[in-house]
Structure formats: C-alpha cells, structure tokens
Design a binder for these strands. Structure first.
Lengths: 225, 225
DNA sequence: CATTTCAATGGACGATCGTCCATTTTATTG
DNA sequence: CAATAAAATGGACGATCGTCCATTGAAATG
C-alpha cells in the first residue's frame, strides 16, 4: 500500500503546492508511466529497475525514494491503471440515460472504447493478471472491479428481466450479468492477441447480439432499443 | 521408474528406447513439469533456472543440455500445455454426437472440464498471455487455438443458424462463434480470480443461457436440446 | 569384464538484478 | 545573499541471474 509518506509538512493552499512539491509529484508520475510503458512493451519479467529509470530519464535512487522499492512501484502502477479504467467507466455512466438498458450499454461502450481498450492498457492488464495469484494487491483490484461493475450490471439486468416478463428474473439477471462481463473479458483477449484485426464495432455487435436474443424488448444489434 | 512410462515420445520404434533414452525423456518431461508448476505458483517473473532445477531435483546444466536455454524451455512448456488442451478437446469431440449442436456442447464442456479448467492450467495460461506480446512462439499458440476451435464452432453455428431460419445465417454464426469463445475466455478469468467460489455448472448454464436465447430450437439451459 | 559413449553433474563465470546511502543539486527560508 | 531543508543523483554492494564446460557416472557395446 502506502509506505513512504510524502511527509508534506504544509501544503500551501494559496500556492497550490510549491515548485519543489510539484516537481516531486511530476517525477513520481513519470516513474509510474515508465513502469506501465515497460510492462506493456516488455512484460513484467523484463521490466527491471534499470529499464524503468532509463525510460523515465531519472536516477536510480528515485524508485527507492518514492516507492520504497520496485515491488511497491509495480503495485502502485497497477492501481493507477485500474483507477483510470474506473474514471472512464464513470464518465460513460454519467453521460448515459437512466434506463437500466442505458447503463448496460454504457458499460459495454466504456469497456470497448479507445480510451480503455487500447494496446497499452490490455498488455498491462494481462501482465498483471499473470501475477494476480502471487500479488494480493493486484488480486484485490480485480475483486473491486468485479464488485462494482458486477453489482451495477446485476441490478440493471434484474429490472430488464422483470420488464421482459421472465419467470425467474433474478436468476436470468445473474446469468446475464456474469455472461456480459465474461464476454467483454473475451473481447479484451481478442484485442490482446490481434490488435490489428480487432474491430470495435464487431465486438459491440457480438455483445448486443446475445443481449438482443435474451432481452429483445430492450436491446438490438446496435445497443439499447 | 519402470512403471512411470513417459508415454513414448518420438522414439524410433525399432530402437524401442533403451534405458538411457527412457531416462533422458523422463528428465526432459520432469523439467517441463517443474517449469509449469513454478509458473503456475510463482509467475513467470519469479521462475528462475534455480527455481526450476530445485523443483525438478535435477542439476543446473540440464536446462542447457535439453533445451539450450531457459527461453526455449519456457516455450516448450507452453507448447506442452497447449497440446494437452487440444488432447482434451479432441477427446470430448470424439465422444460427442454428430449434430452441430453436439459439437458446440463438446467445446463448452471440454473448456469447463476439470482436466482443462484447473488452477494450474489457468495460472499458466494467463502467465503466458502476459508475455504473448513479446514471445512470438506463445502468440502463435493462441493463433492456432483461434483457428482450430473458431473454425469448428463457426461451421457448427452456420448449420444451426440455417436450421433456425435466420435471414443471415453466416453473420449470425460468426457472431455466435466469436461470442461463445469470448464468454468461455471470460469464464477462465473468473476461475483464475476466484477458484474457490467458481462453479462449473453455473458457468455452463450462463453459456447455454445465451445460446438458448439465440438458438432456442437447438439449445436449452443444460446444453443441447 | 573392459571399453566406449553419452547423459548428467555442479561449480565458475560475467552480467545484471534491486537496494541503499553519501553526496550533490536546488528550492525555500531567514 | 547566506543558510537551511528537501529532493535527486549515481555508484557501490551483495545477491542472484542464466550460460557453459570440464568432469563424473552409468548404460551400451563387444
């Protein structure tokens, strides 16, 4: 988690942080970005301290200074990447309509958007997944993701299944939620392995093909009805 | 060591494999298994030569002797894991009926079977995925998987979509094939992150919930109709 | 049984790993 | 403009990495 407290004695509110603190934060972020870049391009196995500081253009000691060690840096990078994922999701949700099907469409669109589903993010995400069993912090991020998105999707699908007149709306909704998130996972894998031939429109159509078959009154091939 | 036959590699039949060759093959396999174990438990990043030979109970030079280096060993381990995946798939396909929906059911059942979907396989598979971008050999394995399973699924779904009277059976089949494989991918991720709470029956039901919605004359919640 | 053959051993090697800290640089304070 | 405080530097350190080969051991051969 957090180890080296920045120990900021006073945050000068009228100055918005002195030049010194500003540079410090900038360097911290530079290290995180360099780490994500390296992991995306070379994988975690090839991402060494030397590799990171070379990309960041900073000195060797910075990693220990800012993060206390390589491991904490890598985990902080994972958290940053995860946080950005959620920022995009919240953005899409905020811009969506209020109907339950609108929320589902927002989740799908966010997960397949260029800001979320791109080479760097996917590479980084799968690199971390490969380490999830060994790193509790990283496993925790995936759990949070499950809980937040899964909860929202489930609630939306319950309303949809009820409106469609299903006899067991909650069972249907649970399966629809898990299935939709699973299929989005699969789309990420597709993108990881074939970033060139991947097509966002095709991916969305596949998702909505399933959803339209299950809830024809609420979805069609291009999203919400 | 006399009963634990290595399931005959490609040894010339007239040689029958002397005791020397038998031991050699056994050690080779021991190295591969130790590598897969280490990758599954510690991840690729923590899988060193020292770690592998300690697990295998063999000497340091064996890796260079048998594989020429660590990289080749890791790639051979990936190929072995992939090969075993296909053996299970072929087994399920051979035991299935001949109707197209039977083939789809066989693919799903194989992908969710205990022999295929277990902690070790999933951990190993995701570890390799994280390196797919950097290792051409590993990326190639995923491609093969796409081609073989994707082709079979697509052909089956075309027949199914035609029988269901869809106006654009090939477009429907393409989406159904990609969607089904994607959702199976997602189930693997579920298992990776929550091996304890994962339920094979639930996973299969989710898949068939989607398929039954799309092809009600061919599938129901428990598989083929 | 003596000899040949080849797999297996395990230590040496230089390279690289991540950590840490004495020193230098630079912003801030008095 | 000094004096001070904090951040950044970059090299030293021991540990560990993966590779390689001279040597050992055991199976095959005659």
């Amino acid at each position: 988690m957090s180890q080296n407290a920045p120990a900021d004695p006073q945050i000068a509110p009228e100055q918005g942080g002195g030049k010194r603190q500003l540079l410090r934060e900038k360097n911290r972020l530079t290290l995180l970005e360099a780490t994500l870049d390296s992991i995306a391009e070379q994988g975690i196995a090839e991402t060494s301290v030397s590799e990171i500081i070379a990309r960041a253009g900073l000195s060797r000691g910075m990693i220990h200074l800012h993060f206390g060690g390589k491991e904490n840096l890598v985990e902080a990078a994972a958290e940053l990447s995860n946080q950005r994922y959620y920022e995009q999701l919240e953005r899409h949700l905020a811009a969506s309509g209020d109907r339950p099907q609108d929320k589902i469409v927002a989740i799908v669109r966010s997960d397949l958007s260029e800001e979320v589903l791109n080479t760097r993010n996917v590479s980084v995400w799968y690199a971390f997944r490969g380490e999830a069993r060994k790193r509790a912090v990283i496993a925790g991020l995936s759990d949070t993701r499950d809980t937040r998105m899964g909860g929202l999707a489930k609630r939306s699908f319950v309303a949809i299944a009820r409106a469609e007149g299903h006899t067991h709306p909650r069972a249907v909704a649970r399966d629809a939620s898990n299935g939709t998130l699973a299929i989005l996972e699969g789309m990420w894998t597709d993108y990881l392995l074939h970033p060139d031939r991947f097509n966002r429109g095709d991916a969305a159509r596949i998702v909505f093909r399933f959803l339209a078959a299950m809830f024809p009154a609420h979805f069609n091939l291009s999203g919400a009805r």
